[in-house]
Simulated assay, not measured.
Amino acid sequence: MRTYLAVALGGLVGTGLRLAVDLFLPHAETGFPVSTLIVNLVGALVLGWLVGGLWARPGTPSWLRAGFGAGLLGSFTTMSAVMASLVLLSSDGAWWLAALYLTVSVVGGLALAAAGLRLGSRLAHRPMPTTVTDAGQTL
């Protein structure tokens, strides 16, 4: 039950974040989908970081992985938005823009996911802080 609640809560937060980005960076239906590109690239980086770091730590609860992965990042990033943007760009005759968008989405997503995995794995191999000073800094 905890896993379902974590996914639902993560989905709520991820959807809200996605809407905020879309409202902050609006684009025409046949314009370059900057907001979708940014969301998916950031999502690839964050998911790579989580998989390489937090999820690699022993004892990370499965409900936390599901809440952040399938819930938050699953609702924040969307492959369907990428495909819809590609169809709209192509149907408007902007084939070169569609090709550029697809290339940046795939190559950028792979590169940022790999970078996230590297960053996360570096963090995962550091010992967890056990002592906190009065100022809130870890020792």
Rank of each mutant, 00 (worst) to 15 (best):
D92F: 12
I38R: 10
L89S: 12
T36E: 11
A84V: 14
A124T: 03
A81M: 13
R65A: 15
A115H: 04
G74Q: 11
L45A: 10
R122F: 02
P129W: 07
H125V: 01
T130V: 01
G120M: 02
S80V: 05
I38W: 14
L88M: 07
F68M: 15
M79T: 13
S75Q: 12
L50H: 11
L89P: 13
L119H: 14
L64I: 15
R118N: 02
V39T: 15
L50I: 07
L117S: 05
V107H: 11
A20Y: 02
W63M: 13
G71V: 07
L19I: 01
W55M: 10
A66L: 14
G120S: 05
V51D: 08
S80L: 07
G69I: 03
G71N: 08
P127M: 01
V42S: 06
F32L: 02
G71H: 08
A20L: 09
W63S: 14
G71A: 05
A113P: 06
T36C: 05
W95R: 09
V51K: 08
V82F: 14
A94E: 07
P127C: 00
L112K: 10
G67A: 03
T30W: 04
V87S: 08
P26E: 02
V87D: 11
A111W: 02
W96T: 10
L100K: 00
G69E: 04
S35C: 03
T103R: 06
P127F: 03
D22F: 01
A56S: 07
T77W: 14
V82N: 06
R57N: 07
G109R: 08
P26C: 02
A124S: 07
V21D: 01
F68W: 13
A56G: 00
L97W: 14
G69Y: 00
P33Y: 06
G53P: 13
A114T: 08
L100Y: 01
G53V: 11
A99D: 10
R65Y: 15
D22T: 00
L86Y: 05
G108W: 04
F24R: 13
G69S: 07
L17S: 02
T30S: 09
S121L: 00
G52N: 10
L47F: 15
L45H: 12
D22P: 00
V42K: 01
T36K: 05
A115L: 12
G74S: 11
W55Y: 14
L97T: 15
R18H: 01
T131W: 05
A56W: 00
A113D: 03
A20T: 05
